[in-house]
Design a protein around this nucleic acid. Structure first.
Lengths: 209, 209
DNA sequence: CAATGTATACTGACCAGTGAATATACCTTG
DNA sequence: CAAGGTATATTCACTGGTCAGTATACATTG
């Protein structure tokens, strides 16, 4: 029964990813996915119970690679800490300029399936964004920033706002605006840490990982 | 030929708005809209050339009322200028807690129709967001804020990010996080103005948190 | 042989859009 | 003013096509 290493299953998910990301969920038929994968629809239904399962698999397959990319962009960046956070947005701006870019697959799927709140794909999307937020928060805590959790949420808002707005206007410069806002908010948080001195309760958040 | 004051046409658009916002575009059939409006499909096609036209009419009908609501929320707010900007987000947080809330109709339509970049509905959505941004920018300029344009764009990013994230997690508290970020960014911009200029028009940009 | 995997061909429902006809309201013009 | 015309507005019944999902049978292989 279809493990995730199964080559046929992998091909199906790859085809589904291509099509769902490019066209949207309800705009892509199961037949189209099967044909793009070079198999028949029945084979697809051997590997997936329903189209909903296939949609969930599409997002599940994007989860780790997406997170890894963000982390890599941060790790390969240089400069002061706020600049390194901003670097994530700058890299994303470059990606958004590619003609096949269509925003965030998780967000777009959520928007399209907003009438099905318990849909498995939405749960996967929510978990993905929570992981990203948690990673940011941990990094902010490592920098001994006091409001690490709130700052991480603010970064998420800027990121997802940029996804939405850049897609709407087809203007990647909004991603750079987000980078600036992120840099400003992180820098301000760092400045508060520096000024606050020893009166605040930063002791609990100081040590790195 | 069907003016926008036409009562039948108005009924159709009202039904379309209800259904498209609640369920999404491709999830709602033209038959469903017609039935909900209490007419036949052919009558609908008498008033609208195609489903795409109907989708555009749905968003066009939301444009002015949405903008008016945001402006009203600002005008009815009290306190210092950054708090009044934040008030928009706070009001939106309350709206997002209603069970029938499904995010921003413009953004969700854009996400669903991302494979049709020139779609008339997307143009209407883009124009709507541009109007909102221009309104913010004008207000920031009235406050003599130097980077008014960029600050307006940052507000837009926070707003649309909050739309997306609140919809994803079904957690309206992210809207309040966005309010805080907005307040911080606006207050910082005001502080820069105060430092740079010669104390022209002091608004008490004092934050509580 | 039995389990796994794939294919052909089908089902019943639904979809966007249309053809032909009808009703209504207003506007000529004899 | 009345007879006839024309544009507006609406309905029923339909088309060609697509959709998610399935019944059944064939193939491969350990």
């Amino acid at each position: 029964m279809a493990r995730s290493s199964d080559p046929t299953r992998t091909r199906i998910v790859a085809a589904a990813s291509r099509l769902f990301y490019a066209e949207g969920i309800r705009a892509v038929s199961v037949d189209a996915v099967a044909e793009s994968a070079g198999i028949t629809k029945k084979t697809l239904y051997y590997h997936f119970r329903s189209k909903d399962d296939l949609v969930a698999a599409y997002l599940a397959a994007r989860d780790q690679p997406n997170l890894a990319l963000f982390k890599r962009w941060f790790e390969e960046s240089e400069g002061a800490f706020p600049d390194r956070i901003a670097a994530i947005f700058i890299n994303l701006a470059a990606a958004a300029r590619h003609p096949k870019w269509r925003g965030c697959g998780f967000l777009r799927t959520t928007a399209e399936l907003a009438n099905l709140p318990g849909h498995p794909a939405i749960k996967i999307g929510a978990a993905h964004k929570k992981k990203f937020e948690a990673w940011l928060q941990a990094m902010f805590e490592a920098e001994a920033i006091a409001g690490a959790a709130e700052l991480a949420r603010q970064m998420l808002l800027l990121l997802d706002g940029a996804f939405a707005v850049v897609l709407l206007h087809r203007d990647a410069s909004y991603m750079e605006t987000a980078a600036e806002a992120a840099r400003a908010l992180v820098a301000a948080a760092l400045a508060r840490r520096a000024k606050a001195g020893k009166t605040t309760r930063r002791t609990a958040a100081r040590r790195a990982s």
